[in-house]
């Protein structure tokens, strides 16, 4: 029993890492623009297809992954510059509309270019169980990759000039502009980074859930839940929230509701957080003047 619980927690942490990455991508965009990117999941799926294309062309796994990340970065920057820029001060409904449009377009593009059949995606990690049988090689490897990503993002924002400028642009756009930060490009970079992180998350989850155009829709939901649980304006909160949701999902799926209602569990987490503590665990409370 205890070993079972421990096993569930461990693999919960492994999937939680994926949710944490996607949640981080969501929060990065939210912090800077107050938009929730409903297309984040589809973008990650598309990036995963790009990686698979590279692999099928014969590139080594890590080169393919890097290539997908770079291309996703460019796509993210382009989307921001072309579509999101005019929406800076648009009402909620307009931004939601554009994001849903984006979701539909990217989903169709995945289906069009890479067809709708479910595909296998290779894992670069060994196939045998590790850590005394608690984790598969892929789970351990993907957790390590997500942790590396999360730590590098943290270091980037904390200890580089560019990271500082991006934080400044998100925190107070007009003041940053006055001290010479190119706010527009910082937001675009943020989008690029978010898309790149999404690409890695997609490649890490694809060996587990298999690749099809709708692969990420469920994962996006957990990422939403994680981001809200941790506080949608707190990157650290989003990461912790993502891990927490992974564990809750696994334990709940194993002992509470069964695997068939896992998505409903995400919905319940979302509603519960928004009603009980809308700012999340680590988020700032937002007051608005009227």
């Amino acid at each position: 029993m205890l070993a079972g619980v421990l096993h569930q927690i461990m693999s919960g942490l492994a999937t939680g890492g994926i949710y944490a990455s996607v949640a981080l991508a969501l929060v990065m965009i939210y912090q800077a623009t107050h938009h929730v990117n409903f297309a984040q999941g589809e973008m990650a799926t598309f990036s995963t297809y790009i990686a698979l294309t590279f692999i099928n062309l014969g590139f080594p796994y890590w080169v393919a992954l890097a290539g997908a990340v770079v291309i996703s970065f460019v796509i993210g920057v382009t989307i921001e510059r072309v579509l999101m820029r005019p929406l800076a001060n648009a009402p909620v409904l307009a931004s939601v509309g554009v994001f849903i449009g984006l979701l539909l377009i990217i989903n169709s593009m995945s289906g069009f270019f890479f067809d709708y059949t479910i595909k296998q995606f290779p894992s670069p990690f060994p196939d045998h169980p590790m850590l005394g049988g608690y984790l598969s090689g892929h789970e351990l490897g993907s957790t390590a990759v997500t942790l590396i990503v999360l730590i590098s993002v943290y270091l980037f924002f904390r200890h580089t000039r560019l990271g500082l400028a991006m934080r400044a642009a998100a925190f107070n756009a007009s003041s940053s502009r006055l001290v010479g930060v190119r706010v527009g490009w910082m937001l675009a970079l943020g989008w690029g980074l978010a898309a790149g992180i999404g690409a890695i998350a997609g490649c890490m989850v694809a060996p587990v859930v298999f690749l099809d155009p709708n692969m990420m829709s469920g994962i996006l939901l957990y990422a939403f839940a994680g981001a809200l649980l941790g506080g949608i304006d707190s990157p650290l909160g989003a990461v912790l929230g993502g891990f927490a949701v992974g564990v809750i999902e696994n334990l709940g799926g194993a002992y509470l509701v069964g695997t068939e209602l896992k998505l409903t569990l995400a919905l319940i987490i979302i509603v519960a957080v928004l009603i009980i503590k809308p700012s999340g665990l680590l988020g700032r409370r937002v007051y608005s003047r009227v």
């Binding site: 909620v92 939901l221 809200l228 995400a266 509603v271 809308p278």
Partner: peptide
């Protein structure tokens, strides 16, 4: 208790969860 974006997000989650239920 949910405004604008948050309601959109929650109802989106509802939509994704429906077939499972």
């Amino acid at each position: 208790r949910l405004e604008g974006l948050y309601l959109a997000l929650t109802t989106f989650a509802l939509a994704v969860a429906v077939p499972q239920v």
